[in-house]
Nucleic acid binder design. Structure first.
Lengths: 153, 153
DNA sequence: TTGCGTATTTGAATTATTATAAAAAATACT
DNA sequence: AGTATTTTTTATAATAATTCAAATACGCAA
């Protein structure tokens, strides 16, 4: 195996090169090692706009992209990214964890039937009059989930 | 074992009697049979004010109260009660399910460290300006979770 | 480059939950 | 009451999501 490999040979790679450097910096700044697996996952996560991903889904995408990573690695990295503020965990369904690449404060629509998540910008929704907190505590975050279903009637 | 037993012998039992009748009606109205186990669980759930319970916890309480119910029964009943509108499932932590005996619309404080849940009355908090929903969908519920932590600094 | 210490990866284990199938209990019918 | 029918319970197995700890690979210093 050559020290410097092209991974995916096709295309000019210019943009990928920029992305790669960008992502590598992102990872280094989080004091994580830019390993082949981690970079591949970062590429999948941050390639195009904001995403809501489950571990299972990311694993499938990695396999599909020809990167053989174990599920345990997926979980490790999702949690490390979350701890570093590169991802945010969204709890909507008690049976699985979703990770959101949008780490700015915002809320969510959750389509109960399909399991799909959609961002609601923070500015598009207001939460007011939060009552006094229990003594000795402070707000860590305010999560609003608007659960929606198909109209029927 | 006598046909009519007092279960817990101490005390006058008057209030318990009322409660028992009340709970039996509640269960019957949900088209469920008032079995010994189901009644015992209902008693534990609705004995005193609103509660937030996990399956594991309810099971422990049942055992402690001398009622031998299997974990499968706990899950069955929690789900049946939820389907009947007697309980509401609250998703705060993707690793376990909480069931809330308060089925009126309201929100929650969630203490991240201890895992404790506390109700916020619906009237004590306002959510406004929910943006337009995706086409063909309607709101099923709006859940607000105020995640809190111990003050430190 | 080589070797070392630590971060990372991964197969195996663990946990919460659900499914199954047979026995027990509750209700319905007569 | 006596019997049939249906619901419920439970032991056990199965599954899904997640975590653990041993083995590996990486990045750095010499």
């Amino acid at each position: 195996m050559p020290a410097i490999s092209a991974d995916k040979g096709e295309g000019c790679g210019c943009v990928m090169q920029y992305e790669a450097i960008d992502l590598e910096k992102k990872i280094r700044d989080a004091s994580l090692r830019p390993t082949k697996q981690r970079l591949a996952l970062a590429r999948l996560l941050y390639a195009e706009g904001n995403r809501h991903v489950t571990a299972e889904r990311l694993h499938a995408e990695a396999m599909e992209a020809g990167v053989a990573v174990s599920l345990a690695t997926i979980y490790n990295n999702l949690h490390q990214f979350t701890a570093a503020g590169l991802l945010r965990e969204v709890v909507v369904d008690s049976s699985r964890s979703y990770f959101d690449t949008n780490v700015a404060p915002h809320h969510h629509f959750f389509h109960e039937k399909s399991g799909a998540l959609e961002d609601i910008p923070k500015s598009a929704l207001t939460v007011d009059n939060i009552p006094a907190l229990p003594a000795g505590t402070e707000v860590s975050s305010v999560d609003v989930i608007v659960r929606i279903n198909d109209t029927r009637g």
